[in-house]
Amino acid sequence: MFQDTRQTYGTLSKSLHWLMAVLVGWQLLKFGDRIADGEHWVGQTLVPWHISIGTLLLVLIVIRLVWALQQRNRRPEPDPALRTFVKAGHGLLYAVLLLMPVTGILVMVGGGYGLSAFGMQLIAEGEEVAWASTLGGLHSPLAWALTALIAGHIVMALFHHFVKKDETLRRMV
């Protein structure tokens, strides 16, 4: 089943969710740079992929947003009592997931570094761009916000599974 239904999410929704979960988890390893100035296995092996993975995540979140909009009338409905809370939480997750790579690109362009992903030069190096650098300054605070949103998302999924014992988590697995 490729498309979503009222009972469960489809193959594409599940695949995008879990692929992005793994990639965002990888991105959050960047916090490890704050430990011993990144002089450890994680900082030297996984973190150098940060910009490339962030660029890939930008593509994936755009695909995911377009897909979610196309599937919005097919997707499982949240508990009516919690609908506003659920939609706001997911809306914030989508917004921050989109803003993270955008502000990351602004950091690079604003600093005059250009943008390279997976060995391809996407934006040439150039002069510093003050406004881009300023907006790019939101990248780190957004990373902390995303971490909090992810933690809340996981806690709520586990709450639904173990406390409410409903099918919420199973729909995405």
Rank of each mutant, 00 (worst) to 15 (best):
D4V: 00
D4H: 01
Q7G: 01
T8Q: 12
T11I: 13
L12W: 05
S13L: 02
K14A: 11
K14L: 02
L16F: 07
L16K: 06
W18G: 12
A21H: 03
V22L: 06
V22K: 01
W26G: 10
W26E: 15
Q27A: 08
Q27T: 10
Q27S: 05
L29W: 01
L29E: 06
F31K: 01
G32S: 02
D33M: 15
R34I: 10
I35A: 09
A36H: 03
A36P: 00
G38A: 00
G43I: 02
Q44I: 03
T45V: 08
V47W: 00
P48C: 08
W49E: 11
W49M: 09
H50Q: 00
S52V: 02
I53A: 13
G54D: 04
G54H: 03
T55F: 13
T55I: 11
L57V: 14
L57E: 15
V59C: 07
I61C: 07
I61L: 02
L65T: 13
W67N: 08
W67A: 09
L69D: 02
L69C: 02
R72E: 10
D79F: 01
P80W: 13
G89R: 07
G91N: 13
L92W: 10
L93V: 12
Y94M: 08
L97W: 14
L97P: 08
L97H: 10
L98S: 07
V102Q: 11
T103W: 02
G104Q: 09
G104T: 02
G104S: 14
G110R: 06
G110F: 06
G112H: 02
Y113A: 05
L115G: 12
L115I: 11
G119Y: 01
Q121K: 07
Q121W: 00
L122N: 06
A124N: 13
E125G: 05
E125T: 15
E128H: 12
V129F: 08
W131T: 12
A132P: 00
A132I: 03
S133C: 04
T134P: 04
G137M: 09
H139R: 03
L149F: 15
I150C: 13
G152M: 08
V155W: 14
H160K: 09
V163S: 12
V163F: 14
L169Y: 00
R170K: 15
R170T: 13
M172A: 05
V173T: 12
